[in-house]
């Protein structure tokens, strides 16, 4: 008998989709800023100006979304909790990671069944979270360069002393590509799990619900 389980609470779903939107917009605008491939037809255009403006607006939106999600790490349900994202810290999690790894590499046939994230995915998400934070920090550090002494310059400016301005810029750029790589993997994995687990993985991030047989969880 299938059970309907409420897995992803609404703040999780909203921040997920805001993040997804932000990543797309920030990546596209960011790549344009790094290499302006379109040329403006006339001097009264403001192409780079708008692109940068959009980049900054979405940077703030992304930051707010990240802060909300971080808060939810501590008040959300067990699937949203920070504990889910450090599976290596718990014996069950380690077991689950190994199982999923074996499934992905075709060593094992059975999908280890979980309600929320599978452990390997959760571990990957904590790395992605770290990359998000790197992007936020390096991004606002670069943003702060326009005005020494400004808020962002004061809190993140010291990075330039440690990694140099081009170093910070390069990091911001390279991490973007890593996140693009992640996005490709993420969509694929969700699709794979959706058809293999047949538990509504894909739709769950819209609705919040997954369908599963309690037998499989044993």
């Amino acid at each position: 008998m299938l059970e309907i389980r409420y897995v992803w609470e609404w703040p999780v779903r909203i921040t997920h989709w805001i993040n997804a939107l932000c990543i797309v917009v920030l990546a596209v605008t960011g790549i344009y800023i790094g290499n302006p491939f379109l040329l403006a037809p006339s001097p009264d255009a403001f192409v780079m100006g708008w692109v940068r403006f959009i980049h900054y607006v979405f940077a703030y939106l992304f930051t707010v979304s990240m802060v909300a999600r971080i808060i939810w790490l501590f008040i959300g349900n067990q699937h949203a909790s920070w504990k889910a994202f450090v599976p290596w810290a718990f014996s069950k999690g380690r077991e689950n990671m190994w199982g999923t790894f074996k499934y992905y590499t075709f060593i094992e046939k059975k999908v280890p069944y979980v309600v929320g994230h599978n452990a390997l995915a959760a571990a990957a998400y904590s790395l992605v979270f770290a990359l998000f934070l790197v992007q936020i920090v390096t991004g606002f550090a670069l943003y702060g360069q326009y005005q020494p002494g400004s808020f962002w310059d004061v809190i993140f400016g010291p990075l330039f002393g440690l990694f140099s301005s081009p170093g910070v810029r390069l990091t911001h750029h390279v991490v973007t590509w890593l996140l693009i790589g992640f996005a490709i993997h993420h969509i694929y994995s969700a699709w794979l799990m959706d058809i293999k687990e047949k538990n509504g993985t894909l739709s769950s991030i819209f609705s919040g619900y997954k369908f599963m047989n309690p037998e499989d969880l044993k």
Binding site: G34, H173, V174, T176, L178, I180, G181
Partner: peptide, 11 residues
């Protein structure tokens, strides 16, 4: 960096 990134994404 862009060539490397594009290669990474494609891979």
């Amino acid at each position: 960096a862009d060539k490397i990134g594009l290669g990474l994404a494609a891979a």
